[in-house]
């Protein structure tokens, strides 16, 4: 299994925590609102083919928050800065949930952020029929119950959730939640202008969703598809909001086929 290291990279006046592992072309992985779960099984598998960069967004994990990072657009600015500095422009990327929204914002700002991109259960576009679940008025346990369609098929369940969080982990989770609140409070988890701006996207885009997503309705896959010309959509059956955790083998297979 490829070794991941934890690095600290100084970007835009703050330190960014980045897990890095594997070899091959770079692959930038952008985590969701819940925080950076580290190099889980899916990341290990991807690292067989790529050099995986898995940063903790500013304000998350051990990453500093430059004081100006207040919105998703600020965060996108931060990451294009990071890419430029680290020579990571025009790379492959995967964005999960809020990280998918982040990738979409970056796509709407520049044509040379990514060479190929996967948006997985991505936030950022308001559904027409359903609603994006408000995770800020439910507790972490309730969120977890909604994220996973069938916990029994999550191979890393015990590893991830088998023991109660330590006080440090609980405090970390609270800091992560605070950053999510900062970034996505209003309008909640979407940018009304994003769909129009995504018309500029010309890089290959793969939209992937769990069929039973209880956080970001699967109809949003269709809305991203409409907004991004030439994009392709895959819906994984019997799967919740985080296919990379709930069905890592199916997810990795789809990712490798596309990337």
């Amino acid at each position: 299994m490829p070794n991941f290291t934890e690095e600290t990279i100084s970007v835009a006046g703050g330190n960014l925590q980045v897990y890095k592992g594997g070899s091959g072309d770079p692959l930038l992985v952008l985590h969701g609102a819940g925080g950076n779960a580290g190099p889980r099984r899916y990341a290990q598998a991807l690292a067989e083919k790529f050099t995986v960069y898995l940063p903790s967004h500013p304000g998350y994990g051990k990453s500093d928050r430059p004081g100006w990072v207040e919105s998703m657009q600020d965060l996108a600015c931060f990451y294009t800065w990071f890419q430029e500095q680290e020579g990571l422009e025009n790379v492959r990327a995967i964005g999960f949930s809020m990280g998918g929204w982040l990738a979409a914002e970056m796509l709407s700002m520049t044509g040379h952020a990514f060479s190929k991109v996967m948006l997985v259960g991505a936030a950022g576009i308001k559904p027409n029929d359903g609603e994006i679940t408000d995770i800020f008025i439910i507790n972490p346990q309730q969120i977890r119950d909604l994220v996973y369609h069938d916990p029994s098929q999550v191979p890393e369940w015990d590893e991830m959730f088998g023991t109660d969080p330590t006080p440090e982990q609980a405090q970390q989770a609270e800091g992560d939640r605070e950053m999510a609140i900062r970034l996505t409070w209003r309008p909640y988890m979407h940018n009304p202008r994003l769909p129009a701006k995504l018309a500029r996207v010309s890089v290959p885009t793969h939209i992937l969703w769990g069929e039973n997503d209880n956080l970001v309705p699967v109809e949003c896959a269709g809305l991203f598809h409409q907004a991004i010309a030439g994009s392709q959509v895959t819906v994984i059956p019997n799967c919740g909001h985080s296919p990379q955790i709930e069905k890592p083998d199916d997810f990795v297979q789809a990712a490798l086929a596309f990337l």
Partner: peptide, 10 residues
């Protein structure tokens, strides 16, 4: 009252 109502994170 749920904690996230009375005193939300942040």
């Amino acid at each position: 009252l749920p904690r996230d109502y009375a005193s939300p994170v942040g």
